[in-house]
Design a protein around this nucleic acid. Structure first.
Lengths: 109, 109
DNA sequence: GATTCATGCAACTTATTGGTTGCATAATGA
DNA sequence: TCATTATGCAACCAATAAGTTGCATGAATC
């Protein structure tokens, strides 16, 4: 599973809402989590399968109901990758700024 | 622009590659950034427009060429949101663990 | 001025996504 | 056992996305 798939999985309002809910209450059943999202249960299930394939969520069948569990590790991975990008960008920006100032100084000579 | 759109924009291998490149070298022209991605220039441009709409990137036309600039603020926002989710999840998990242990202890009585 | 370079825009095709309805089935509870 | 509950699976549809080719245009260069 590639990292892009993780972001792709988060890139839908319904799925993002689901993840948000799960972060606040890790004990959802599939049915409960599917309510109030503006889609049918079957529609919601498709989203959950996508989240499962992206390893963001685990679906655990048991008895009559299926529990939905959040996988924090995936989120952490996704989060740290972006922040790494941001950090690299900051460093570059700083270098650019330093260069600009140096350039201005040399013009002042 | 919703947060889900930011993740959606990052949820494609070509676009993620672009952002990665930009984080390492903020001074790309559209043409240079479009090479080596396995798509045509016009295809790459479509991706760039998507990144621009998600405010991840800015396209700055000038003379004959167009510069592509990374917007670090968007990345930081995206990164911190996920890490917030992860944090909330950790707290919940800890609570659950504590509850389980308490439960075990009461069984021990 | 003619040529080359970097880009923008439009039309079109195909694949993927998001959503639905309908039906089947296994577990609970009365 | 019978009704109810929670779910899974398949078929189908419409919209969006990803990609292409072709052409137009403004800027640099010779």
């Amino acid at each position: 599973m590639k990292l892009a798939d993780t972001y792709k999985a988060l890139g839908d309002p319904v799925r993002l809402k689901m993840v948000e809910r799960l972060s606040k209450n890790p004990a959802y059943t599939l049915g409960a989590l599917s309510k109030g999202l503006g889609v049918t249960r079957q529609g919601a299930r498709k989203h959950l399968v996508i989240l499962e394939n992206a390893r963001i969520v685990r679906l655990v069948p048991g008895g009559r109901e299926t529990k939905v569990l959040l996988n924090g590790a995936s989120l952490n991975k996704a989060s740290s990758f972006i922040s790494e990008l941001g950090r690299a960008w900051d460093v570059r920006l700083e270098a650019l700024r330093a260069f600009s100032e140096q350039h201005v100084e040399s013009q002042d000579l």
